[in-house]
Simulated assay, not measured.
Amino acid sequence: MSQQPAIILSSLDYDRIDALLAKEKELSPVHEQLLLEMERATLLEPEQIPADVVTMHSRVRFKLKSSGKEFEKTLCYPHELAAYPDAISVFAPVGAALIGLAVGQYIDWPMPGGQSDQVEIVELVDQPERKGEYHR
């Protein structure tokens, strides 16, 4: 894997994800990779999050380098999947890759089946913090 990009997490997202992971009896490879990303992240208060950074409940357009295919999804917690018609869990392989990246950044990320791919942020369609929603 190449050098990974800097990532930014809100302290609220960090605390909520960390609490969910602490409840897991056994961590999957995706959970472990997400924890590694969280450990190296720059933490900011929700009010300080830049407008181009993917946070929880952000609607993000991204593409996978291997196929060039673009997707638009709302990043959510696993228990919220039914709340969004286009949901992707932060515990899914691609969902875990999205959190903390800014528009234009990409990350090499392990995918199911032992392959890896580059996930690139194309556009941040919606972000709660941009709208002043700091505790969502």
Results as ranks from 00 to 15, higher is better:
F71V: 10
L64I: 14
K65H: 11
S67N: 04
P29Q: 07
S116W: 13
S66C: 06
E24R: 04
P128F: 02
E70C: 06
D126I: 07
E45G: 02
L36F: 04
P85F: 01
E39Y: 11
P93T: 05
D15N: 15
A97R: 01
L27Q: 07
P110D: 03
D52L: 01
R16I: 15
I88H: 02
D52M: 04
P29K: 06
E24A: 09
R130T: 12
S10T: 15
Y106D: 14
K25W: 04
L101A: 01
D52W: 03
E72D: 12
M38F: 03
H135M: 09
T74F: 05
Q115F: 07
E39S: 10
D18N: 13
L9Y: 03
E123A: 11
P110K: 09
H31R: 00
L75N: 06
E123R: 08
S28D: 10
E47D: 14
P93R: 02
T42E: 14
S89L: 08
I107Q: 00
P5I: 12
P78A: 10
P85V: 14
C76A: 12
E47K: 15
A97H: 06
E24Q: 15
E72S: 13
D18Y: 08
S10H: 00
I8Q: 10
H57L: 14
A87W: 00
Q115L: 12
V90E: 08
I7K: 12
H79Y: 05
T55I: 14
A41Y: 04
D13Q: 04
Q118S: 08
E32R: 10
E133A: 14
E39I: 09
T55M: 11
D117Q: 03
I99V: 14
K63F: 03
Q3A: 12
A97P: 08
W109T: 13
P112I: 09
L43W: 05
M111H: 03
L34E: 03
V125N: 03
Y14F: 15
T55D: 04
H57I: 03
L101S: 04
H135I: 11
L21V: 09
P29S: 11
S2Y: 09
M1V: 11
L34F: 00
G104E: 04
P46V: 07
A19R: 08
E45F: 00
P112Y: 07
L20G: 04
P93V: 06
G104D: 05
A96T: 07
E129W: 01
D126H: 08
I49F: 05
G68V: 06
Y14A: 12
D18F: 10
H57Y: 12
L98R: 01
L27H: 13
E129S: 14
V122W: 03
S67C: 00
L27D: 12
I88K: 06
T74C: 13
I121M: 08
V60P: 00
E72A: 14
A41F: 02
L98S: 00
T55G: 11
Q115W: 02
A87D: 13
S10G: 00
V125F: 01
R40T: 10
V54L: 01
D86R: 01
L43T: 07
I99A: 08
W109A: 09
I107A: 01
D126T: 04
F91S: 07
P128L: 09
M56A: 07
A96M: 02
A41L: 05
F91I: 13
K69S: 02
L64N: 02
A82V: 13
G104A: 03
Y84P: 01
S58P: 02
G113N: 04
